[in-house]
Amino acid sequence: MAKLLRFGIVGSVGFLVDAGILALLLGFTPLGPFISRAIAIALAMMATWYLNRRFTFGASRHSIVREGFRYGSVGLTSALVNYLVYSALLILFPTLQPLAALVVSSTAAMAFSFFGYSRFVFRR
Rank of each mutant, 00 (worst) to 15 (best):
G20I: 07
F69Y: 11
R124T: 02
I64K: 12
L90D: 11
R6T: 03
A108N: 09
R66A: 15
F112D: 04
N52G: 11
A88G: 08
V13R: 09
L22A: 02
S118Q: 07
F55R: 08
S78P: 10
I21Q: 05
A38Q: 03
M110V: 12
K3H: 11
H62K: 12
T48V: 13
I41R: 02
G11K: 08
F120V: 14
S63H: 11
T56M: 06
G72K: 02
N52S: 10
F122G: 03
V85R: 05
A38L: 08
T77C: 06
V10S: 12
L24D: 00
S78M: 12
G32C: 00
S12L: 15
S73M: 12
M110P: 00
I9T: 15
M110W: 04
A101Y: 04
G20E: 10
A42Y: 02
A79P: 00
I9E: 15
G75K: 00
S60I: 04
R70E: 07
S73T: 13
G27I: 01
L92D: 08
R54C: 13
G20M: 09
A40L: 09
N52H: 09
S63G: 15
F112H: 05
A2M: 09
H62F: 13
G68C: 12
A111W: 03
P98R: 00
T29F: 12
T48E: 07
K3R: 14
A79H: 02
P98D: 05
F93E: 03
F93Y: 04
N82M: 14
I21H: 02
V10H: 11
E67H: 05
A38Y: 02
